[in-house]
């Protein structure tokens, strides 16, 4: 059942995202064109400026739209008219949530890849390859100097993955909470999101405070200020990363449970 849901979810999302990505690549190519042509008169300069702005805006747009579409898909397919079909399928609520979570995550990854590809298209031929080689050399150097490098990179990667899952589940939980308010589902969802965000910020601030102000070693680093070595800072960052990862995993689980509970026991479709 989960596989079937996943497949249908992927198709439903894929349609919209494909169009989005195609448009974005289109804008990228047009932008590239304007930067590659040699002619330099006022008209081309104006167009080039305009297209460049459009390009930058579209990068932001892809990122924002990805999450808007994730929210839209969940809301439309589960909490609006299509919900009548979704919730009468012989499928557990948890399977609905997980299928959507997985597909949403995959499309976030796709969006990132598309943006990187687009930037690559822009940079290629303009010395990008050389710059990349230079950068990789720097990285190799850092790796040989700092023993915790690999762990650092691994933690950063895990943090990115967890952060995306965390955000998606927080959005789903907000929508589910909003669903409880009969007449103001979207308003309730926004309220829910703000509420959850505030609560999570408070908890994380308290955690950070306990962790750092109560810890001599880190207070030392803070006192060092500019004199602190990169290694000390990196070590501290490692701990911060770990704490944030655990914090977000715990909250992700909480958000999932809230969503599952509300949609299976407190569903009230119009």
């Amino acid at each position: 059942m989960l596989g079937k849901l996943f497949r249908h979810e992927f198709r439903a999302n894929g349609r919209i995202f494909l169009a989005l990505y195609a448009a974005f690549i289109g804008i990228t190519l047009i932008n590239k064109l304007f930067w590659v042509i040699e002619t330099s008169n006022v008209i081309t300069e104006i167009f080039r400026g305009f297209i460049t702005v459009l390009y930058v805006v579209s990068i932001v747009a892809i990122a924002v739209l990805t999450f808007i579409l994730i929210v839209y898909r969940f809301y439309n397919n589960l909490l609006k008219d299509e919900g009548y079909l979704s919730f009468t399928l012989p499928v557990k609520t948890s399977q609905h949530i997980i299928a959507k979570l997985l597909v949403s995550f995959i499309f976030v990854v796709f969006s990132v890849i598309i943006i990187v590809a687009s930037l690559f298209i822009m940079g290629v031929g303009a010395g990008l390859v050389a710059k990349i080689a230079e950068f990789l050399e720097q990285v190799r150097l850092i790796f040989t100097l700092y023993s915790g490098s690999l762990r650092f990179v691994a933690e950063a990667a895990v943090l990115c993955i967890v952060a995306v899952v965390y955000l998606i589940l927080m959005l789903y939980a907000s929508l589910s909470v909003g669903q409880l308010f009969m007449k103001h589902k979207l308003g309730g969802a926004v309220l829910g999101f703000v509420g959850l965000y505030v609560i999570s910020q408070i908890i994380s601030s308290v955690l950070m405070a306990i962790l750092f102000f109560g810890n001599e070693k880190y207070m030392e680093i803070a006192r060092y200020g500019d004199a602190a070595t990169p290694y000390m800072v990196l070590d501290m960052l490692n701990v911060i990363f770990l704490v944030v990862i655990i914090f977000q995993i715990v909250l992700s689980v909480a958000y999932y449970l809230v969503t599952n509970l509300i949609l299976s026991k407190k569903l009230n479709l119009e």
């Binding site: 439903a12 349609r15 299509e82 079909l85 009468t88 012989p90 557990k92």
Partner: peptide
């Protein structure tokens, strides 16, 4: 639950099909 949904066929008053 899942087991009852398997054996119930429902026609709602509104259209609930994916329009696309």
């Amino acid at each position: 639950g899942t087991e009852t949904k398997r054996i119930v066929s429902y026609l709602p008053e509104k259209t609930y099909l994916n329009n696309w």
